[in-house]
Amino acid sequence: TEYKLVVVGAGGVGKSALTIQLIQNHFVDEYDPTIEDSYRKQVVIDGETCLLDILDTAGQEEYSAMRDQYMRTGEGFLCVFAINNTKSFEDIHQYREQIKRVKDSDDVPMVLVGNKCDLAARTVESRQAQDLARSYGIPYIETSAKTRQGVEDAFYTLVREIRQH
């Protein structure tokens, strides 16, 4: 089974770092803004072998026109913010609204991801993020692309959301 996953969120929150940590098991430290990259990885989730087709997208506003296209083809979405960047957390709402509009559905598989949880300088409390996820009816997972904490959990949870859909 193949799953088309799309990673969305503001610029600099760590979308590529999360994806590369999942696929290649290493942490990319330097920031190089993405336009669009796709990665494929075969994994076993709950005993089922599946192929993850992951689209890593641009957070930069100037590429926002490309969003409709990949939102149409994606089956599930990782909505990523950084726990030390309140603005990126506030941006999640717009991504969710755009996904709902493009998919013409209120019920699209999504996982809210709070990345950079290895950093002490948190400005978005776990509780705020949990409340937001609960209001959307989606899971919330904290990750660190640096330490790998929660990385597999985030992507695998999204696959489970798609399966249950």
Rank of each mutant, 00 (worst) to 15 (best):
L55H: 09
V151P: 14
E161G: 12
Y31T: 09
A121H: 14
L52E: 02
S105R: 04
G59D: 08
R96K: 07
V108D: 03
K41M: 05
Q130A: 09
V113H: 10
H26P: 01
S38K: 03
G59F: 11
V44I: 01
K4E: 01
K146H: 15
V43W: 07
I141L: 10
D107L: 02
D29I: 04
R160C: 13
V43K: 05
S135F: 14
R40G: 04
D32K: 02
G76W: 00
R96M: 07
E152L: 12
M110E: 05
G76P: 01
D153K: 10
A65E: 03
H165Q: 11
G114F: 08
Q128R: 10
Q149K: 13
K116I: 15
L112K: 12
G76M: 11
T86C: 01
I162L: 12
D91Q: 07
A10R: 13
Y3N: 09
L112Q: 13
T1Y: 00
E97Q: 08
L112N: 12
K4N: 09
S88T: 04
Q21Y: 13
V151T: 14
I83T: 09
L55T: 01
E125Y: 10
Q164E: 13
A129H: 08
E152M: 12
Q149M: 06
T34A: 01
D118R: 04
A133Y: 15
Q60P: 15
R134V: 14
K103R: 02
L78P: 01
L5D: 07
S144Q: 15
T57A: 08
S135R: 12
I20H: 09
T123W: 12
K146Y: 15
L22K: 15
D91R: 15
V102G: 03
Y3T: 12
Y31V: 07
V6P: 06
K41N: 14
R122Y: 15
E142A: 09
A82Q: 12
E62A: 09
I54K: 00
A58W: 11
E125M: 12
Q21C: 11
A65H: 08
P139C: 14
Q24E: 02
Q149G: 13
P139M: 09
E62F: 15
G47L: 03
A65S: 05
G76A: 11
I138E: 05
L51D: 11
Q24S: 04
L119M: 13
K146W: 14
A58F: 08
E61L: 14
P33E: 14
R160N: 13
R67I: 14
L18T: 01
V151G: 15
D91N: 10
V13T: 14
L5E: 00
R122K: 14
T57Y: 12
D107P: 05
K41L: 10
G12Q: 14
A121D: 09
